[in-house]
Design a protein around this nucleic acid. Structure first.
Lengths: 329, 329
DNA sequence: CGCGTTTACGTCGTTCGTAACGATA
DNA sequence: TATCGTTACGAACGACGTAAACGCG
């Protein structure tokens, strides 16, 4: 068993059991991977993958177990290299972030711009990911950190650092009846109107659905999109009333009427999620600092080192208090 | 970076920074290790060990970090091999246990004998360890499991499975004044007598010390030993009153008078402690089953797999309920 | 001068890539 | 027949062990 073999194994597993594709990804030849996989299987004494003819068909039950451990091994190896790179004060590297579109579009730009100013050598890679897969990307080791929102408690996986609170807003064209009134609508009223919102709000566990469920009503979702810009576009087109995150409303959106939804939906929290046992490069800490300035850098480092829960976080600031920063991006 | 290099690194660290000794332990030559260490350091770009002349002097601060990760990597690699060995249904292997002398002498024999009956090919290795170092042995990966007692909560490190409860007893020669009375002594009375007990009872955090501290008295510990047999020997010699674990009193000890100490000292719990994320061989589960029959095998396996706290243990049996079993050994 | 580490060197095993072959849909 | 995996083979690299040199107490 070698680290190379394990790396190949993971590459194959992550390439949908296509050895040729995996070989490209690790910059090696296909026969090389084939042989190494074979040797690993020989050494372990059982098949990691079930074959169908010559092709790999599925991952064995035992293979799953091994792959899981192999991931952990490779992650730790990467950690060792990260320690080394950081010690050499190497300012260049990569920052891979998995997040939702809204974060990437409205919340992250300021922090990433600031990071780029201090560490121009660091290449940031925003992994385009469906909302539901963000944490899986982190667990699989494809990204260094995830940025994700919940309506309540911290996400279960990894170590979650609270970045900020935010709320939803209701958006209509200026001529809309709701816009003419001086008070925001009730939930019941909202349920009677066609809504335009995020794809994720269709899911039963979404906090939007929960809010309506609580009063026994079902919202009419006229259309959904993964993308706040799309939602705004369709609100402008008169398709319905938009329900989206407050930070998605920017200066350029003056043509839309924004109503508070504070009283209707629970407050949401955006978290930075790190892999347990991951070693952060200096510039990663810098990014966290930029994105969530209320977090103490040493506390973050300490939390990762000890896995100790003895670190207490300060008050999580609401998004509004940061709008000045965000608007610059 | 290779697994071999990491293995050598750990061997060197565990051999007191003596490369020659480390080379023997891994069955390789000294120049081989020397060179691999050098290459690893070159690749990482910093020293893992500080040199004094040619010899290794201390572990670098960064070296500590790397060694910690390397241990984790090697442990996971061992886990993969364990999965493989178990899948091949290989009944031979090794079971390394770190524990205290009392457990090794009085509690473990029955379980180990039973294990040996079902798995004659498994070599059991009882790591002789000072009480305080038991958990360190486990953390360093030198043993598969630890068996250790506490007076209260589970030990912090690893995953602790409660095996049984036990209490202390007071032991005197038959002619002793305490033996003649029909009621057991009070703590105050005991404090006035010379005691013979375990080495660990000298430590401030021992539950024996705590009990005396609570009433503002200090026990007179006439002598201590790490070994219940020694304690009994010196009690027989009239050196003082013995305070030891109930399971240390066996059939051959009829020449000593045993008094209950239930009312004086808190109940103790003996735990089986496993490394988090360790994969157990089939025969290890068998051992656990033998040693703590009230634990469900699948629950143990599940606990290790998910790290989930959703497994609830049944009532922990007191030692007395197992004496029939223990006495056969 | 003994102990431990490093350097030097020759051998052997292994990996890797190229190229040809085989199987599957 | 196109796609994907295996087999075959030669070249290059790298690890290992032996032997000798070096430094330190």
């Amino acid at each position: 068993m070698t680290l190379v073999q394990l790396r190949y194994l993971i590459a194959i597993a992550d390439s949908g059991l296509n050895i040729t594709l995996a070989a490209e990804r690790v910059h090696a030849t296909q026969p090389g991977l084939s042989k190494q996989l074979r040797q690993l299987e020989d050494e372990l004494g059982f098949q990691l993958f079930a074959r169908k003819g010559k092709s790999l068909d599925t991952i064995t039950r035992a293979g799953e177990q091994v792959i899981e451990r192999a991931r952990s091994i490779l992650a730790e190896a990467a950690n060792i290299r990260a320690i080394a790179a950081d010690l050499r004060n190497q300012a260049h590297g990569e920052l891979r972030i998995a997040t939702t579109h809204t974060q990437a579009r409205f919340a992250l730009p300021a922090a990433i711009a600031a990071l780029n100013a201090s560490y121009p050598q660091v290449r940031v890679h925003l992994q385009p990911t469906r909302d539901a897969d963000v944490l899986a990307q982190l667990q699989a080791g494809h990204v260094d950190l995830a940025v994700i929102s919940t309506a309540g408690a911290a996400p279960a996986a990894g170590i979650a650092l609270p970045a900020y609170h935010w709320r939803r807003v209701i958006v209509t064209p200026h001529g809309h009846p709701l816009a003419a009134r001086d008070q925001p609508p009730s939930l019941a009223e909202l349920a009677s109107l066609p809504l335009v919102s995020y794809e994720s709000s269709l899911k039963a566990e979404s906090s939007l659905r929960h809010a309506f469920d609580a009063i026994g009503l079902t919202p009419q979702i006229a259309m959904t999109a993964g993308d706040a810009d799309l939602i705004k576009t369709y609100v402008r087109a008169g398709l319905g009333v938009g329900v989206l995150a407050e930070m998605a409303m920017q200066d350029g959106d003056r043509d839309l009427h924004t109503l508070s939804a504070e009283h209707l939906f629970p407050v949401c929290t955006t978290w930075i999620v790190l892999r347990r046992d991951s070693v952060l490069r200096e510039y990663m800490l810098e990014f966290i600092q930029q994105f969530a300035p209320h977090l103490d850098r040493r506390d973050v480092a300490r939390l990762l080192a000890n896995d100790a829960a003895d670190v207490h976080w300060p008050r999580i600031p609401p998004w509004r208090e940061r709008e000045g920063v965000a608007a610059t991006a």
